[in-house]
Design a protein around this nucleic acid. Structure first.
Lengths: 132, 132
DNA sequence: TTAACTGTACTAACACATATAGTACAGTTA
DNA sequence: TAACTGTACTATATGTGTTAGTACAGTTAA
């Protein structure tokens, strides 16, 4: 489900970019799946079509989706490369955050406990339904 | 050393807040140490005094520093509570980032490797010199 | 006492990013 | 043909961050 949070400090178009890329990378959107049109998604989320267009344009630049003028926007078929990039980015962000945590006085044992917690919960189900 | 990065998306006053709080919490600034005056720091960093004032005001609100009108701004003597808050915040941020990393497909072993890397490097030296 | 510091409180102006509103045009589809 | 689609504009509004300038009261040292 594509959503936005108006109270979030992050701009709407960035929320959309991260949201849709995550959905695509994690398999909640199938390759070549037809995304909602600019005007339709704008109506659904009650925001301006220009904002949707801005997000779609950036997602196309990132090769997460592709556009066929007159037809619509579609999920990129080779999402694997995007997934690898996303994975690398999350790993790098985690590396930085680990350093911050250590400098703040967090002990390794505490992080191990967090790891247990994080990997305890089983992986979520994936379907082709965009609304999940 | 108090610094700002003009290219950073984060506002200058927020950089200053995080920067100074980190220096205080990690012992690079001593309790009751005299901070640079609003006008002096503005001159050093080549930014507007109002921006410094905004950061100092917020740091005082967070009990990281205290102000004596006519005298200057000083590091809070009971920085311990601030340090505990900072530690909790970093832990919470780490918790969220771990969840993101897992969802992006990062395996537990990779994170264990990052942990080794993070806790391998010995702790840095701390001095009372503000310029370190 | 005076001069030079200090924090603090304003107003005004500017720059920038975000978001909205409206219009237009060309390609696609039923 | 009608109703979709993406795309490209211009204009406007808004909020945030930053700068500029002024002012006033408290502190400190010569």
């Amino acid at each position: 489900m594509i959503t936005v949070d108006m109270r979030d400090r992050k701009p709407i178009y960035e929320q959309l970019i991260d949201n849709i890329r995550t959905l695509a990378v994690q398999g909640y959107l199938q390759p070549d799946e037809h995304l909602p049109s600019v005007r339709q998604l704008a109506a659904d989320l009650a925001i301006n079509p220009n904002t949707i267009q801005k997000a779609y344009a950036e997602l196309e630049r990132q090769n997460v989706i592709y556009a066929l003028p007159g037809r619509g926007n579609f999920v990129s078929p080779n999402i694997g490369a995007i997934a690898r990039e996303e994975r690398a980015r999350q790993l790098q962000t985690l590396r930085v955050q680990l350093a911050f945590a250590r400098r703040a006085g967090v002990g390794r044992e505490e992080i191990e406990a967090l790891l247990d917690e994080t990997y305890q919960i089983p992986t979520e189900e994936r379907t082709g339904d965009i609304n999940e």
